[in-house]
Every structure is written in structure tokens, then in C-alpha cells.
């Protein structure tokens, strides 16, 4: 009997320790901002609008829910809010609005960038994660019409007056890029063809590129102009916008499974409407601080 008491006491102590280790008191309620995120189905009585679009023939993993793959951690396109659970960002706003207008719920699935496209139709219906539309990618998946235009940009540290008028001017510099992005491909191409002699530092995260720029480890960062806009809006005194390659725009689209043509069709319709009624422009200036050209 005594032993039992001891056992119970010890288990009690262990549970307490565990809760100390687990750290949390009570499970808090989901933050206010999260709920509407999940229940943003036509809650404002916009079902009439939903009926505008023909949803027959579209394939979804679970009925009534648009599952979206995103690599959450690429501000300002997609990022977690401070509560650590609510995805926020330009892409999030766009895709949530698309789903809302279609009368669907949205379920954002956080996924690693590597293999993100392999998850389409398995883990989620579409990918809306700052994906550039490329010919290569088009071979294995469908893309919606672009919802944002993007250019390659060169960012220097504030106070660096070097004139950059084309990527050729990066000759002899050390340049940071995010690994396996269009920027990476572009600069690697310049290098491998022997056009310029440049040392490329390819990072897992775009933030690392900017940190390296801060620390003087690299001379320049080549990055999507949209991302650059986001960083410069938050740190206007730290960096200078040295060059933007207007000649070659690249477009971000929503990636959709190869077979899911019906879904592509309705998403395109919705995006066209969102463009027409100014939703996209509003969202752009909200997230990037400048108006889209």
C-alpha cells in the first residue's frame, strides 16, 4: 500500500516535470486571426458569387476544401504570423480570396520547397508559393494565369554607389542567391557560360543572403524584385535597389495538377475578376508598399 502511494506520488511528480518541460500552461484558444482563416467560406453571404463559377468537373482531395501547398517562410509571400500558426502573406491573401470566391474553404499545408510540386494531388490540390511559371515546369503541371509579375533585381548594401546597369556589371563580385531559385539559375547561367566571373553563394533561406550582405560577406544579392520590395519596405535605410531587369519579366502562377484542367479554368476566371475589381492591386500595395507596374 505504501509503495502504491509512492508510485502515485512519483507519477504525479513526473507529470508535473513533464508539464514544466512541455512548458505550456493551458492550451490557449486559437488566436482570433486563425479562425476566419479557416472558415472563410462564403461567410458574408457571398454564395451568389460562388455560383458564378462552374465547379463541376474539378477534382479536390477533400470536398469543399481547397488544399494549398506553401513553403511558409518566404516573406512577404508566405510567412507565419507571430502566433506561429497563422499563415499570412501576399500568396495567402490571393489564394484565400480565390477559394472564398469559389465557395471553398482553404487549407494551407506547410511544406518544404524541395519536392513541393511532387505533393500536388497527393498532399494538396494546388501550390501557391511564389512559383515562377517556366516552360520546364509546364511540362509536368498546369499553371494559372499569372497573378503577379516579378523581375530579377540586384540589391546592394546602403552606401555602395556601384552602378549596376545589367547583370554583366556583377563581374568580379560575390553574389548571394537563394538556392534553386530563378535568381540562382540566372546567375549560374551567366557564370557557366563564361559571360561574367562571379562567385555565387547559394543559401537555403533568402534571409541568409541579406544577412551576408549586412556582414559584408557578399557584395550583392540577386533576388526576386517582389521579395526585394518587401525587404526594402521594412529596411529602407539598409539596402539600395541597384538594378531591376525589366526586360525579362517572370510571372508567378498557381500550380495545378496536370489533369485538373477544370480547376485551372475556374481559378483563371476568378483571378481575372480579382484583377478587374482591383483586389490584386490592393493586395500588392498592402504587402509590397509600392504599386504594381
Amino acid at each position: 500500500m505504501k509503495k502504491m502511494t509512492k508510485i502515485v506520488a512519483l507519477i504525479g511528480a513526473a507529470v508535473m516535470c513533464a508539464s514544466v518541460i512541455a512548458g505550456c500552461g493551458n492550451k490557449t484558444e486559437a488566436p482570433a486571426a486563425q479562425e476566419p482563416q479557416e472558415n472563410q467560406t462564403a461567410e458574408n453571404g457571398e454564395t451568389t458569387e460562388a455560383s458564378k463559377y462552374d465547379l463541376s468537373g474539378i477534382k479536390l482531395i477533400s470536398d469543399g476544401v481547397l488544399s494549398v501547398g506553401e513553403e511558409v517562410g518566404y516573406p512577404p509571400f508566405e510567412d507565419f504570423a507571430e502566433d506561429g500558426v497563422t499563415p499570412i502573406g501576399y500568396d495567402v491573401d490571393i489564394i484565400t480570396e480565390v477559394a472564398k470566391r469559389l465557395g471553398l474553404e482553404v487549407n494551407i499545408v506547410n511544406t518544404a520547397w524541395d519536392g513541393i510540386f511532387a505533393g500536388i494531388d497527393n498532399n494538396y490540390d494546388v501550390v501557391c508559393s511564389a512559383c515562377t511559371i517556366t516552360e520546364e515546369r509546364k511540362e509536368s503541371m498546369l499553371f494559372s494565369e499569372p497573378y503577379i509579375a516579378n523581375y530579377q533585381a540586384v540589391i546592394l548594401k546602403a552606401g555602395n554607389d556601384k552602378k549596376i546597369e545589367s547583370f554583366n556589371d556583377l563581374d568580379g563580385m560575390t553574389v548571394a542567391v537563394q538556392k534553386e531559385t530563378t535568381s540562382d539559375e540566372l546567375i549560374s547561367d551567366y557564370k557557366s557560360t563564361g559571360t561574367i566571373d562571379v562567385e555565387i553563394v547559394a543559401n537555403e533561406k533568402i534571409l541568409s543572403c541579406f544577412t551576408q550582405l549586412d556582414n559584408g560577406e557578399v557584395d550583392a544579392v540577386v533576388v526576386d524584385s517582389t521579395v526585394a520590395d518587401g525587404y526594402l519596405a521594412k529596411n529602407p535605410d539598409a539596402y539600395v535597389y541597384a538594378y531591376k531587369d525589366d526586360s525579362e519579366a517572370e510571372y508567378f502562377g498557381i500550380a495545378i495538377g496536370k489533369e485538373n484542367t477544370a480547376l485551372k479554368a475556374v481559378i483563371d476566371e476568378v483571378l481575372a475578376d480579382m484583377e478587374a475589381d482591383g483586389f490584386i492591386a490592393d493586395t500588392y500595395s498592402y504587402w509590397f508598399g509600392v504599386t504594381e507596374e
Binding site: G25, T28, E29, P31, A33, P36, A81, E82, A233, G289
Partner: peptide
């Protein structure tokens, strides 16, 4: 929604923040 309300309770302290997103 533009404001994220974060409430974290951690044993002896708690933390609450209100933040808008965007530029």
C-alpha cells in the same frame, strides 16, 4: 483579417501581441 492577436501563456509569464501584416 489584418490583425493577428497572439496570446502565449508560458508557466509563470504570458505574452500578448497585436500585429498587422503587410509592408
Amino acid at each position: 483579417k489584418r490583425v493577428t492577436v497572439t496570446y502565449n501563456s508560458l508557466i509563470i509569464v504570458n505574452y500578448c501581441s497585436f500585429s498587422t501584416s503587410g509592408a
